[in-house]
Amino acid sequence: MTAAPALILRGLGKDYGERTAVGAIDLEVARGECLGLLGPNGAGKTTTISMACGVVTPSRGAVEICGASLAEAPFRAKALLGVVPQQLAIYEELTATQNLRYFGALYGLAGARLAAQIAWALDVVGLRDRADELVGRYSGGMQRRLNLAAGLLHRPELLVLDEPTVGVDPQSRNHIFATVRALRDEGMAIVYTSHYMEEVEALCDRIAIIDRGAIVATGTVAELVAQHAGRGLELELAGEPGVLEAAIARASEHAELRRDGARLHVSPHRDLAPVIAALEEAGATIARIESREATLETAFLALTGHALRDAS
């Protein structure tokens, strides 16, 4: 008999009054799989994750964690789940050990078992030698690592990480990367959201792209790129700033464009001729045209119409 998937979302949706934040999401995460959840701000990422973790009650649909229904057996389901919120959900006035003692108690851990789990979690995130220091004295990166330790303290089957590397130094970022990789290799299923596309690309086995409250695509990086991204084109423009503004506005009527200073990225699968014609008619000079390799970013752009970081 095969084990139930680590996470199943079936028709999961949330309405806030008249507004639908998440339509009806279907998603499955296999045991030991690392799934990246990508989406611009306001796409419904956090709401989806919050519903999956039992923090927000869905308006419709169902959540199953390792075969346990979150609606019917919430405590069993939540015991199998670890959450690392985007906020630093730790107490700065306590030491790392004191923090973990409290969070461990929430999962029914006590005594020697709790002590052993605390030691393990602090080892995993590389904070054992700072265990009895006040968290307020930690660097931002160390606090992020403790935030992660609090989520995996009870060795969950499924770990949900919401933007775990926001505002951290490169050293801590690399440490968090290494920790997530090690946990995945040990068989822990992981749902990872990030604004850093390269993080998701490097860590995740599969990626789900969410936009306007719906999953618009899922697959491996290769699959997403093959299906949704062609070779992109980059135009370098020259001319007076006012002229460029007008030219770009005019060209935008013919294709979705992303601007980076005087450079213009044209979405794949678009006919370039009317764009060039519009730019030249408006007085802009095209200094250079370059072909770019298709990437996850171009796929994301094609699917959502937003650059991930521009949207954040």
């Binding site: 923090v55 405590f75 939540k78 015991a79 630093l88 730790i90 929430l106």
Partner: peptide
Amino acid sequence: RKTGTWRRLLAAPVP
């Protein structure tokens, strides 16, 4: 609520 520990509490197997 501000620090997110409330969120962590709601995500825990606690009524």
